[in-house]
């Protein structure tokens, strides 16, 4: 319950910051809202009325909060549509990309870490080196590299703008590789630490296969820090998506953000900030809910029975 309250607090903070930003932008607020589009004086008057700009600041703030609570994110005058409509059109594509990136990072890191933990040097060494290189490679460059090899040369995957699963593969890899490498380092270290624990010796003394020891006993303990990092990563992915969508010419929120910023489309930018905050908060709530499932010691004890 406390976690939900603090999540609400984070969202409220994000809302307040965007509200304040609107008022701290130099020049008229109306100009900030309409951005680079041209509007008639009637619409200007309409904006002043919608945003209560002729009323005291606290009334404007309450009005802003109230509209957000009703799901009204405002109107993008550049796009000529409601902000929510603009978001709806683009969110699906970005959501798919985020999911693809996270899935690749998680699956990749688990596979690599499990395959290399506590292995001889000739297996572990190259894996560790590959991880360092992967973390160091910028995602846009990786994206271009992937496009060059797998689209233009080998024609395995479509180059640009494709929808569906095929179009998602390369962008997901480009987005997820560096995080995958980082997670797999963390996970391998965690696994190697857990593998020294007495309960692992007990499991092996029971006659269990190494693979069963790793997957059934060790992985669950080692994966906790990875879960924590994944929550943080999703936040990083939202900004990572901006770059990836540009490189792969994908539709999506990242693409939309770049446009909104360059056209000074304030209502749209503010809405994207709020959406990112919402995604971040929801993911971290999910992460918190996951801990007790993974480690029973974190569950609220229904009284220790003796």
């Amino acid at each position: 319950m406390r976690r939900v309250a603090s999540a609400v607090l984070v969202l409220w903070g994000a809302v307040t910051v965007t509200f304040l930003a609107l008022h701290l932008i130099p020049g008229s607020i109306v100009d900030a809202i309409i951005g680079q589009s041209r509007v008639t004086p009637e619409i200007r008057a309409q904006i002043i009325q919608d945003y209560s700009l002729d009323k005291p600041l606290w009334q404007q703030y309450l009005g802003y909060l109230g509209r957000l609570l009703h799901g009204d994110l405002g109107h993008s005058y550049n796009q000529g549509v409601a902000v929510s409509t603009a978001l709806e059109q683009q969110a699906g594509s970005t959501f798919a990309l985020l999911l693809g990136g996270v899935a690749f990072a998680l699956v990749g890191s688990v596979v690599v870490a499990v395959a290399t933990a506590n292995r001889p040097r000739w297996i572990r060494g190259p894996a560790a080196t590959a991880e360092v290189v992967s973390v160091a490679v910028p995602s846009f460059w990786l994206g271009i590299l992937l496009l060059t090899v797998f689209s233009f040369r080998l024609h395995w995957f479509p180059a640009i703008g494709a929808n569906g699963f095929n179009g998602l593969v390369l962008p997901s890899i480009a987005l997820g590789l560096a995080p995958a490498a980082m997670l797999s380092q963390v996970l391998r270290q965690g696994l190697e630490r857990v593998l020294e624990e007495p309960f692992i010796i007990t499991a092996r003394a029971r006659g269990l296969r190494s693979a069963a020891v790793l997957l059934r006993h060790a992985l669950r303990h080692a994966v906790l820090p990875v879960v924590t990092l994944t929550g943080w990563l999703v936040g990083a992915f939202v900004s990572g998506a901006v770059v990836i969508e540009s490189v792969f010419s994908r539709q999506g929120l990242g693409h939309l953000t770049v446009g909104a910023i360059s056209q000074r489309d304030f209502p749209l930018v503010a809405a994207i900030v709020l959406i990112s905050a919402l995604v971040y908060v929801v993911v971290n709530l999910a992460v918190d809910a996951l801990y007790p499932l993974l480690d029973p010691r974190l569950r609220k004890a229904p009284e220790v029975v003796r």
Partner: peptide, 24 residues
């Protein structure tokens, strides 16, 4: 070895709090 461990030779370690998997 796996056919001996557990089936022919059982092994008990010191502190069951850390010698049993705490997550199971």
């Amino acid at each position: 070895w796996r056919r001996l461990r557990g089936r022919r030779v059982g092994f008990v370690l010191q502190d069951a709090l850390v010698s049993l998997d705490p997550a199971r």
